[in-house]
C-alpha cells in the first residue's frame, strides 16, 4: 500500500516538476510548482515526517509560492518572446544537465556510502515534531539563531534598498485620531444677540 502510494506521489512530483519548466505560461509554471511542493509534502508524510510535511505546505505553498505567483502575475512579461532566444543556450544547458546527472549517477554507483540505510524520521522521540524540538533549541541553537540573523539582514537590506520617505504623502495617525476629544475640536460660545463674538 505504502509502496503504491510512494510511486504514485513520486510520479506526480516528477511530472509536475517537469511541467514547471515545460509550461508555456509562467503562471502555469508556478501552479505546477505548487503541485510539486504539495506532493513532496505527501512524500514526507509517507516516511513519517508529518511535521515537516505540514511545515512545507504552510511555508512554501502557503507563503513563498503565493509571492512567486504574485510576482509572475504582476510582471506580465511576454515569455514566449523572451524564450525565443533560449534555443541558442539549449546545447549548453543540456551539457550542464548531463554533467550533473552523470556526477550523481557516478557518485552513487561508485560511492561507498550505504545507500540502503533506513531513514528514521523521528529519532529518539515518538513524533517527528518532538524529535526536531529536542535538538533545535539545544544542539543546533547557534544555527537557529544564525538563521534569524540572516532574516534580519534580509529585512534590513530590503528596507535599505526600497523604503523611500515621501514627505508629501498624508498619513493617518490613529493614536492622534482616537485621543482627540470633543473639547479639542470646538467650544460652545453663548453670544449675546446682535453683538457676535
Amino acid at each position: 500500500m505504502a509502496v503504491i502510494a510512494f510511486y504514485l506521489i513520486a510520479a506526480v512530483v516528477l511530472v509536475s516538476a517537469l511541467s514547471v519548466i515545460m509550461a508555456r505560461n509562467p503562471v502555469h509554471s508556478v501552479l505546477w510548482l505548487i503541485l510539486a511542493f504539495f506532493s513532496s509534502a505527501g512524500l514526507l508524510v509517507l516516511i513519517g515526517a508529518e511535521f515537516l510535511a505540514m511545515l512545507l505546505v504552510v511555508v512554501y505553498v502557503g507563503a513563498v509560492a503565493v509571492l512567486f505567483l504574485f510576482v509572475v502575475m504582476m510582471l506580465d512579461v511576454d515569455f514566449v518572446e523572451l524564450k525565443r532566444g533560449t534555443l541558442r543556450y539549449w546545447p549548453f544547458a543540456v551539457l550542464v544537465g548531463i554533467i550533473f546527472a552523470a556526477e550523481i549517477v557516478l557518485a552513487s554507483v561508485i560511492g561507498t556510502a550505504d545507500m540502503e540505510t533506513n531513514f528514521d524520521a523521528s529519532p529518539g522521540a515518538e513524533t517527528n515534531a518532538e524529535a526536531i524540538g529536542q535538538v533545535m533549541y539545544t544542539q543546533y541553537l547557534l544555527l537557529f539563531q544564525m538563521a534569524g540573523i540572516i532574516l534580519l539582514v534580509a529585512m534590513v537590506g530590503a528596507i535599505v534598498l526600497t523604503l523611500r520617505h515621501r514627505p508629501e504623502t498624508k498619513r493617518q495617525n490613529i493614536a492622534k485620531q482616537t485621543s482627540r476629544r470633543r473639547s479639542d475640536a470646538y467650544e460652545l460660545k453663548d453670544p449675546t444677540p446682535g453683538q457676535g463674538i
Binding site: 504539495f38 511535521f51 505540514m54 511545515l55 505546505v57 504552510v58 505553498v61 502557503g62 507563503a63
Partner: peptide, 9 residues
C-alpha cells in the same frame, strides 16, 4: 498544523 496548512492553501 494540518488545518493551518489547508487554510493557507
Amino acid at each position: 498544523l494540518y488545518l493551518f496548512a489547508i487554510s493557507s492553501l
